[in-house]
């Protein structure tokens, strides 16, 4: 049961698995809140150092919940996993589940303008996974690439200029 390092690679692999086995593949999203109370010493595997517990007042912190995504095909036994604890990723992951749902429902792949704007990294993944044989996205890719390049250049230039001005002001 491999955990994939990034959400992007997880989604890419999941899309490939779903498009290969659309009927049997399922995506399970597990949201887990761990127990907040200190674990029973009888239950825990290793005895916690008793001296460190009172000295570290970590109790008021909110519990660290985790979100685990699992794409599993019981027929081939393929299992892909991704785990995160960042709230910022939830919206994007659910949106990606929606686009995976489109593949499951055997709907044609759809270009999502929102995704491209918000996460430019996502765009090439989709094209890889869904539009393999289609040559149409190429143009888009090129345009996207140029756009990104310009953006980066602009940012770099701006940043450099700002830095220079600051230095001059200080001296």
């Amino acid at each position: 049961m491999p955990y994939l390092p990034t959400a992007q690679s997880f989604l890419e692999q999941s899309r490939l698995l779903i498009s290969a086995r659309p009927t049997t593949t399922r995506i399970t999203t597990k949201y887990t809140l761990p127990k907040t109370s200190p674990p029973d010493p009888s239950k825990s595997k290793s005895p916690p150092p008793p001296s460190s517990e009172p000295s570290q007042p970590h109790q008021p912190q909110p519990p660290k919940a985790t979100l685990t995504l699992k794409t599993y095909d019981p027929i081939s036994g393929t299992c892909l996993k991704y785990e995160t604890d960042k709230a910022a990723e939830v919206g994007r992951l659910i949106a990606a589940l929606g686009s995976c749902g489109r593949v499951m429902a055997a709907l044609p792949a759809k270009e999502e303008a929102v995704d491209e704007g918000a996460m430019e990294v996502d765009a090439p993944v989709k094209e890889d996974a869904e539009g393999k044989a289609k040559a149409v996205p190429k143009e888009k890719e090129l345009k996207g690439g140029q756009g990104q390049g310009q953006h980066k250049g602009g940012e770099k230039g701006g940043g450099g200029g700002g830095g220079g001005k600051k230095k001059k002001g200080k001296k």
Binding site: Y31, K64, T84, D85, K86, A87, V90, I94, G98
Partner: peptide
């Protein structure tokens, strides 16, 4: 249904974002 997917996932995402409050904030 297939044609309701998009609308559903929008609302589903909102429910999940609101419900998964234990995750780390940015």
């Amino acid at each position: 249904q297939a044609d309701e997917l998009e609308g559903f996932f929008m609302r589903y995402a909102d429910v999940c974002k609101a419900g998964m409050s234990g995750l780390k904030k940015r």
